[in-house]
Structures are given as structure tokens and as C-alpha cells.
């Protein structure tokens, strides 16, 4: 059992949970994730370790409630408990000083991006951060990311905050400007966003790291369910990733495999929560 210390709503359906998990807090590195189950019977849900405080023995999770099991997780109040938290899993981000880097986050991907951006800034990189969402209400961690970035750019689809449009727009400007062009780009978000970023940087030969979110079960390399195609080869995202070279990832296959349970899960959401969740 893992105590939930706090549970705050950051955006619609997006919660920040601080959870007591001392061993994970002291062994985790940026880029790694945990597998969580709120209670028995639930699916095993991979969630990035957003931050950690080794001294306090806590980890921070940013959870978007999109289906039955993530809803159960965000429903656990401060003072409550999560049945299972296992990790840290996956390979840590390869952190070095590129000089200038760009960090791109879309939706809940911004939360996955946060520990990365933090580690890159701590390693001495000059970080430009671009985050996007549907509207102002969905923009998360802007203050935290702003504090460690040299420049923070926000895009919203409805124009309610920052530039109207997608994260790729400001990135195009960056990449085109030799004075601001990053040595590496880190992109985390929905599959179409990561694909668009990779396509944008490809002609410029800019190293582009993406963090993939295939469906997982064990997270330890045992089931092979998380396999993704990278450079034509099957990789297990939970042990070989979750970060990969965006120029080599087969995003079509990833998007396709992510849709495997769309029908069965949609009906499940209806039964469990009585409503479909955005």
C-alpha cells in the first residue's frame, strides 16, 4: 500500500498526486515511470514519475483520467492509498549538455516532459519549452516549466492562451533561426504531435527524442505487449525505452496498436463511470 499525500486538480481530469514510495523516490531517474493500480481488479497503468523528493520519500504523478483505471487512481484522496506502485521502470533519459535544447509538450505529455526539461536545465542546457493544449484550461505546469526555461511558449487550439494553433508552429520558427536552433528536441504528447515534430526536425538533422506510451502490462519486458517498431525493429518500450529516436519510430503502428482496446474500453467506461470521458 502506498499513501497518497496530496491530490490536486491541475486541469480538467488531470490530477497531481504526491505518493509515498521511498525506494522509488531514491532510485528513480528522469524519464522513468511506475506502474500503478489503485485497487485489486484494476488494470496496471504506466505513469511517468513527474518528480521525486528522495528526502521526503515521495514521488509526484500527473494523471489524466481517461478510462476506468485512471479514474480510480485520481479518485483516491489525500490520506487514501494506492494498492500497487511498482518502479522505477524504463531507461532513464540520456541527459547531456547540447547547448540549446527544445522541449515540446502536448496535453498530459507536458507532465511527462517536466522531469526531462528539469534534468536538461540542471545539466546546463539552455531550454526553450513549447507547450500546447486544447484551451487555456488544459495548459499545465506553465509556471514550473517557465522557471527552468530560457523561453516558454504556449499554444492553444482555441487561442485562449498564447499563440493560437499547435506546438509545431513556434518550433518551426526556432528550427529556421540559426541563432535559436536547438541541438536536440524532446517531444512528448499525442502520437500525431510527436510525429509532426519528428517530421519537422528530420530535414534539419536535429536529434529528436520522443517518449512513447504504448499499452503496457508488466513493464518489465515479460509480456512484449508494449512492442513498438523503431528503425524497422521491434523494441519493448518498457525496457528499451520509453524514449526513442523520433526519426526512426513507426508512429502509424504505435497509433494503431494504441487503438486495440478502444471499443472494449469505451463500453467499459460506460458501465463503470456511467459516462464517456473526453
Amino acid at each position: 500500500m502506498f499513501d497518497v499525500i496530496s491530490n490536486e486538480v491541475l486541469a480538467p481530469n488531470l490530477h497531481q498526486l504526491v505518493v509515498r514510495a521511498p525506494r522509488i523516490a531514491s532510485s528513480r531517474l528522469p524519464g522513468q515511470f511506475v506502474i500503478v493500480r489503485a485497487e485489486a481488479g484494476e488494470e496496471r497503468i504506466p505513469l511517468t514519475i513527474g518528480d521525486a523528493d528522495a528526502a521526503a520519500g515521495t514521488i509526484t504523478l500527473f494523471v489524466q483520467a481517461i478510462g476506468a483505471s485512471t479514474q480510480r487512481i485520481v479518485a483516491v484522496p489525500a490520506g487514501g492509498r494506492l494498492r500497487d506502485v511498482a518502479g522505477p521502470l524504463g531507461l532513464p533519459t540520456h541527459i547531456r549538455n547540447w547547448g540549446r535544447v527544445a522541449c515540446i509538450g502536448g496535453g498530459v505529455g507536458t507532465a511527462v516532459l517536466f522531469p526531462l526539461a528539469k534534468a536538461l536545465a540542471e545539466a546546463g542546457n539552455e531550454v526553450t519549452t513549447i507547450i500546447g493544449g486544447r484551451s487555456a484550461r488544459y495548459i499545465i505546469l506553465a509556471d514550473e516549466l517557465g522557471a527552468l526555461s530560457r523561453e516558454l511558449l504556449v499554444t492553444t487550439e482555441d487561442g485562449s492562451l498564447g499563440v493560437q494553433g499547435f506546438v509545431t508552429q513556434p518550433l518551426e520558427g526556432l528550427v529556421a533561426d540559426p541563432a535559436r536552433r536547438p541541438g536536440a528536441v524532446f517531444a512528448v504528447g499525442p502520437v500525431p504531435m510527436m510525429r509532426a515534430v519528428a517530421e519537422l526536425t528530420r530535414p534539419h538533422g536535429i536529434e529528436t527524442v520522443v517518449s512513447l506510451n504504448p499499452i503496457m502490462i508488466d513493464g518489465t519486458g515479460m509480456c512484449g505487449g508494449c512492442r513498438v517498431l523503431v528503425g524497422g525493429e521491434a523494441k519493448f518500450a518498457c525496457v528499451d525505452g520509453p524514449e526513442f529516436d523520433g526519426h526512426l519510430v513507426d508512429f502509424d503502428n504505435l497509433a494503431d496498436r494504441l487503438a486495440t482496446y478502444r471499443e472494449s474500453e469505451a463500453s467499459h467506461v460506460c458501465r463503470v463511470a456511467g459516462k464517456e470521458v473526453a
Partner: peptide, 20 residues
């Protein structure tokens, strides 16, 4: 092998036996 509906035995059995 990466088509939807292709499982390893471990994934198939784990989903049913461990996860119900």
C-alpha cells in the same frame, strides 16, 4: 507480428490469469 490481435503467450495468459 505487430498487428493488433497478435499476442505473446505471456501477455495473453497474464491478461486472463493475473488480471482477470
Amino acid at each position: 507480428e505487430n498487428l493488433k490481435g497478435v499476442y505473446s503467450a505471456n501477455e495473453y495468459l497474464t491478461r486472463v490469469n493475473l488480471m482477470g
